[in-house]
Design a protein around this nucleic acid. Structure first.
Ligand SMILES: [Mn+2]
Ligand SMILES: [Mn+2]
Ligand SMILES: [Zn+2]
Ligand SMILES: [Zn+2]
Lengths: 147, 147
DNA sequence: CTTGATGTTTAGAATGATTCTAATTCTGTA
DNA sequence: TACAGAATTAGAATCATTCTAAACATCAAG
């Protein structure tokens, strides 16, 4: 799920913004695509360091800022916690599981977005709508219990 | 809009939680009710200091935590900005004006909340839904241009 | 190829909202 | 009045993030 298509998309978007394609940017984006669990900058730092041990946390922040700016990644905030990052570009909401702390994507049909938008009184024009749920999500079964 | 009714509500809620009614708590809550512009803790600190110059910022934070805990006030977070506080207990969304930075309340009919809730796949149970709009809101007219 | 301009990365310092700590002050009751 | 627990206070600590300044890399001339 990583390869050429995404890799090209990245190079393309960077070029569109007059930015260079670098190993750091590629690896941060790749790490984000590989495990779609809404990691924080710190978590990505750890993951990317195994491939590029010299990368710095500042660079991870810089790359993420760039990716968000290129519209390849969304920044997700929940209460006062560290910002999380999401490569899902479809319209979706976030569900925060109170028990596990996990963040799940919830697809949002366009019709719902219209309904939500319709509650705005006259004169309001929204450029974005963010929806966040909190609660309990179905426990995914342990994929295999070892010995 | 401040007086006995709200004042009693505060005393009552505090008592319910085994907490004391103090001048600091009263003033912070009053300041929140008086100007419903979703102030930050710092802004409330400034406002309350004119009535009680000895109050500390830590106390403002403590009082807000207490008020949130008593369900008299909602904490509102937007991206990485400082937490804002809202005494509107009705179900409502927040609209952040990109130009002015102001935060406005948007009433949410129960029917919409149901619709939103309905997008959750089976097994998800939400205990709260938060909706945040960004965009442009109607300019309220300057109430009188001086000179 | 050099060279310079510019973009990028890096380590570490700085920032800023919030929380914590420890001491002091209050309040309600014995 | 005296004490226990609650609340307030000033200032230190925390922590995610941003900033700074220096080192590096890359590209486009010359
Ligand atoms: Mn973060
Ligand atoms: Mn705040
Ligand atoms: Zn997401
Ligand atoms: Zn509000």
């Amino acid at each position: 799920m990583i390869t050429t298509e995404n890799s090209d998309a990245l190079a393309q978007r960077l070029a569109d913004s007059g930015l260079r394609s670098t190993p750091q940017r590629g690896l941060v984006y790749e790490a984000l695509l590989k495990t779609r669990d809404h990691p924080t900058a710190d978590e990505l730092y750890v993951r990317v360091k195994s491939d590029l041990p010299t990368i710095s946390l500042a660079t991870v922040y810089n790359c993420l800022e760039t990716l968000v700016h290129c519209h390849l990644v969304r920044a997700v905030n929940f209460e006062r916690g560290p910002t999380r990052y999401c490569p899902n570009l479809q319209p979706h909401a976030h569900f925060h599981d109170d028990d596990t702390g996990e963040t799940h994507d919830i697809d949002l049909p366009a019709s719902l977005l219209h309904q939500v938008n319709a509650v705005l009184p006259g004169g309001y024009h929204s450029s974005s709508i963010e929806i966040i749920f909190r609660g309990k999500s179905p426990h995914r079964r342990a994929s295999a219990t070892k010995a």
